[in-house]
Amino acid sequence: MADSPSKILKENIWYSNPVFIQILGICSTLAVTNNLINTVIMTVGLMFVTGFTNVTVSLLKNLIPRKVRMIVQTLIIAFYVIIVDILLRAYLPDVSKALGPYVGLIITNCIIMGRAEAFAQSNGPLLSFWDGITSGLGYMWVLMIIAFVRELLGFGTLFGMSVLPEGFTHWTIMVMAPSAFFLLGTFIWISKTIMLKNEGGRK
């Protein structure tokens, strides 16, 4: 499997986007999508962890016995997540407090394990790093859109700044959990419809 970097980019951002095609790793991050700042920080953290985990797994792939590779991968992921956690607590203590347990939950985010298993196991370190970063990007833009809608309608703000006029009635539902499910479901619907149309056009 020797894909070109641009093909990997396209695959990860659209054709096999981790969120709306593979439905992976939505657990840990949906919870923070009612706020754009938290979403950005969370997804950047995820991108960092995915990229470096992929490099490490790719470098060590011949040294890890097949039988224990799952646990070794988990430990590698946990190692990078701890780095992210410590960095956040040192430089962005407020955000770190707001994210709470969800930073730690990056460990169980299936995207990272999935990419390490599916890509890094059979590719070189540089390509793997690229794959990890682009997977993170594919993840990021979808969640940013969801967070954008939720923060705008739920609080009337964007990145913490008030953008809607005073009299705007806040949609309380957008702050609560169900809206994330609805928005993601709608997002999947739209993207899948576009994809089905493109496929139909090609034939």
Partner: peptide, 18 residues
């Protein structure tokens, strides 16, 4: 609807449950 089949409708169902 075809585009909503599979995970899409599942997520919206979960939303109602939530």
């Amino acid at each position: 609807p075809a585009g909503l089949k599979g995970p899409g409708i599942t997520l919206i169902t979960i939303g109602f449950m939530a």
